[in-house]
Structure formats: structure tokens, C-alpha cells
Simulated scan of single mutants.
Amino acid sequence: MSTYHIAVLPGDGIGPEVTESAIRVLKQVEKLYDFSLELESFDAGAERFLKTGVTMPEDTFKHCKEADAILMGAIGLPEARHPDGREVNGDVIFRLRFDLDLYAGVRPCRLYEGVTSPLRDVSKGLDYVIVRENVEGLYASRTGGCNVRNEVATDTIIMTRTGISKISEFAFKLAQKRNGRPLDGTSMVTCVDKANVLSSYAYFRSVFNDIADRYPDISRDYAYVDAMTLYQVLSPHMFDVVVAENMFADIISDLSSATIGGLGMAPSGDIGDHHAMFQPSHGTAPGIAGKNIANPVATILSGAMMLEWLSERHNDPVLAKAAGHIEQAVEAVLSKGLSKTADIGGKSGTEEVGNAVVNALML
């Protein structure tokens, strides 16, 4: 039996609640398949910062680095900030992304049957993935910006050939594994940028094209970021895999989540060549923490993404089967209306949805 060590960071607000549901689902597939997850929880986040002044101890970072994968709930609280105004959640999320080189932020955007989209017409399908360059772009300046006399502030966007090549390569390899865009099954990678205005984004596109030349079997497409927000609303069926710089991808990812029922339906993975972290796309939502009403689906699906990544990294097909089983269970729960939280039109609580997915795994 294969054993994998998972560092769990439940975090703040609703983080512990949704993480608990995901862990129950993971423990159930452990029973059904021949593998073992050693899950160890660590205290990191805004609550810890408010109590101790430290968001993530070095020992916790060390455990995360040594783990086979990281599962995170949600980190941050509005009142937990550094003197310069930055929220402390970056001490955890950005630290892990940058120091472990988790350069690919992967955000699946899939509308499940049984969940109503705010879009008027989704009859042509809605199933694409946004791939975010995670360690460069504008966010690379997060601690290195300049503020002069509180009169002038600047941040510098960082684009490197290495970074753009790696994220473009990741996007094309991901497209090879998928079934193409819903419109017609065409395998395609769309580059989102602002190449018509800024030289940094023109450079991003030029390097993207260099990588695209290596994948003649995958179509390429382009969209300026402002137009992309229009296309995501009017014709999301046009997309298969979308790749973009850090900040642009951050923005269009939240828009994509809105089209599939909200952030509670949006899992994510921060993936590198040797390490990976998986978490829901939503924040800590402190206003509903402890009320048992948060949607755990995004965290449950993030757990499935974690198993899928571990399967590829360790050549363990059993984990891929378990990941697929979780996705099927979520699909069954939603499509049959067995259990849904209020954000997607239901009346169930966090724990009830988690239990419904566990039960669906046993059918």
C-alpha cells in the first residue's frame, strides 16, 4: 500500500469547516482504494498572526516543503494586516507559491448539472481551465514595491522567458489531456494578455508562440484581457485551456467562478515540478464562519485534484481512480439534488453536503 504525507492548513474563518468535509471524503476513498494518506494539520494563518505575530512558523513551512502535497482551507482575515496595509495571508499563500516554485495556478471552470449559472444560455457547455502564472507578473513585486513620501507608489511587472515558457508548456500539456472545448471538441490554448498596449504582455505572447510551435496538434488563440471578460460571459463554450499572467489570471478566474455557481464551486491547485498545494478558490468568509452554511464542494474537489496530481507524480493509477470517484460522487449529489448549500440554491449545511458526498462514494 502506498502512503502519502499531506500537510493540512485548515486556516481561518470557514477554512476549518470546509477542510473537515474534504478530509472525510478523502478518508472514505482511502477505505475504497489501496492507498493511505497521513494527514497532519498545522496552525498557520491570520488567527495565529493576531495571537502571536507570526503567520506561519518556519517549522510549519518545513513540514509543507517535505510533504507529498499540501491541502489548504482558507487563509486570512480583514483585520490581520501588516503595517503597510497588506493582509497577512500572503505570508502563507505567496510564501508557499514562491518558495516552492508553484508556478502553475490551475483553476477548473466546470458547470455541474444541478447548479444554475447566472449566464442566460449555457446550452453549448461550460468546461474550461484557467492556468495562471503564479510566481512572476505584477504580484512578484508584492514586497518590493516603492512608496516615496506616501506620494508616489510603484510596482514593477516581472516577465521572464523561463517563467512564460514553463507556464505555456504546462498549459499545452494540460490541453493534451483534455477533451477539447465544449463548442466543437477542438483542443486549444488561449493566451490572455494586453499585447496591444504593453510591451511586457507582447513579450508574454511572443514566448507563448514559441512554445505553441512545439504543439502543432493543439490550436492556439488569443484574447485581450478586457475582451476576455466579455467572452467569458457571452461565449464560455469557446474555451478549453486559458493561460495568463499572474494578476490577469487572478481576475478572470474569479469571473469564471461566478459563471459556475460561485467560489464555493471553484477548486484550485498551485502546482510546481516537485511540490503542489490544493485549496478552494474562495476566501475565509468570516461572516459565516461557524454557522455550518459554507459550501465545501470547492475544497472536496481540490482534494480530488490533489489525488490526481499525486497519481501523475508517483505513477500511481489507483489515486487517479479515487480522484475520478470523488468527482463522480460530487456530480451525483448535485445533479440529483441530494444536498446543496444556500449559495447554489439549496438548504443543506456544510456537514450535510460532505456527508452526502461520502454516501455517494459508497453507492
Rank of each mutant, 00 (worst) to 15 (best):
P118D: 06
T160V: 03
T143N: 11
V115Q: 01
T160S: 01
L138M: 11
E79M: 11
H82C: 10
T162I: 15
E151M: 15
D121Y: 00
T156K: 13
D68K: 06
D155H: 01
I75F: 10
G76D: 07
M56K: 05
E136W: 05
A67R: 01
S117Y: 06
V122W: 01
Y103C: 02
V122Y: 05
N134G: 05
A140D: 04
T156C: 14
F94L: 12
R86V: 15
H63V: 04
N147E: 12
A74C: 04
L102D: 00
R86D: 12
N134E: 05
R107S: 01
A153Q: 10
I158S: 12
G53S: 03
E151R: 14
C64F: 01
G90I: 12
G137H: 00
K65D: 07
V152I: 14
R81P: 14
N134I: 00
K62W: 15
S141D: 08
P78C: 08
E113K: 11
R132L: 04
K62M: 14
R120G: 12
H82Q: 02
R95Q: 03
K65Q: 13
T162N: 15
V135H: 12
T160N: 00
G90F: 06
P83M: 09
V92W: 05
A140W: 08
T60K: 07
S117M: 07
T156F: 15
G144T: 15
D84K: 10
A69R: 03
Y112F: 06
V88S: 01
D91P: 11
G114H: 05
G73C: 00
G76C: 02
I157F: 14
T55G: 09
G73A: 00
E66P: 03
E136F: 02
Y103E: 08
E136K: 08
T154W: 08
V135N: 11
I158G: 10
A69L: 05
R95S: 10
K62C: 06
V88W: 03
R81L: 14
C109W: 13
T154L: 09
D101Q: 09
D68W: 04
A74T: 08
A67Q: 00
C64W: 03
L119S: 08
S117K: 09
T162H: 15
D121A: 02
G144F: 12
L111V: 07
V129E: 02
D101T: 12
E133T: 02
P108W: 03
V54R: 13
L96W: 00
G90H: 11
A153K: 10
V135L: 13
R95W: 10
L77R: 01
E151C: 14
V54I: 09
L71Y: 06
T60S: 03
L96H: 04
V148W: 10
R161E: 13
M72N: 09
F61Q: 02
N89F: 14
R120W: 14
G85C: 06
T154N: 10
Y139R: 05
A69Y: 04
C109M: 15
T116Q: 14
L96T: 00
K65F: 11
E87Y: 15
V148K: 06
E113H: 05
D121F: 03
D127M: 10
R95T: 06
E151N: 12
E87R: 14
G145Q: 09
G125N: 09
H63E: 10
T156N: 13
F61S: 01
L119N: 06
A140L: 09
D91V: 04
I75R: 08
C146W: 15
